[in-house]
């Protein structure tokens, strides 16, 4: 149910993001989704890729520090209120959302949103009970 996300620590200096994307390109790794959180001195590049383990080792070899985190890829109906309903369910369950970002591709008619939720293992059954579809890693990587 869970998807592996890469978080790459990048200092705020020119060319570093390019180093990451070039490394991934050279290793034929496809980026499925990404977001950047930034501070004054550094940023965290979060990536969903088609092959997280290979991507991590390629980036490690280039000297990057990479953390792997489990996140949820959730199907969101592409219509008004679609995202609101899912966030309501998460909130009612008492789970905090650390951050979230949209996926580049779609799953049929639906959008995909990446959620980083506290207590992820407790959240999964509650979401599924409410009929929320959570995509597996395989599904995401083969999209």
């Amino acid at each position: 149910m869970k998807v592996s996300q890469l978080s790459v620590f990048i200092e705020n200096k020119s060319g570093r993001l390019a180093d990451v994307t070039r490394t991934l390109a050279d290793n034929s790794i496809n980026i499925r989704a990404l977001s950047i959180a930034d501070t004054i001195d550094y940023g965290l590049l979060r990536l969903i890729v088609n092959d997280p383990l290979r991507a991590k080792s390629a980036l490690n070899e280039e000297g990057f520090t990479v953390a792997l985190t489990e996140v949820l890829a959730i199907e969101v109906p592409d219509k008004p209120g679609g995202l609101a309903r899912i966030i309501d369910i998460v909130a009612e369950g008492g789970f905090n959302i650390e951050y979230m970002y949209a996926f580049v591709g779609t799953s049929g008619e639906n959008a995909i949103v990446i959620f980083r939720i506290e207590k992820i293992d407790e959240a999964i059954p509650i979401l599924q009970d409410k009929g929320v579809r959570i995509l597996t890693g395989e599904e995401i990587h083969s999209l």
Binding site: F9, E98, R116
Partner: peptide
């Protein structure tokens, strides 16, 4: 230097 043990996906952990 951030070591693999120090790095996290959350900015607030690093801060």
């Amino acid at each position: 230097e951030v070591s693999p043990e120090l790095v996290s996906d959350a900015v607030r952990t690093l801060e």
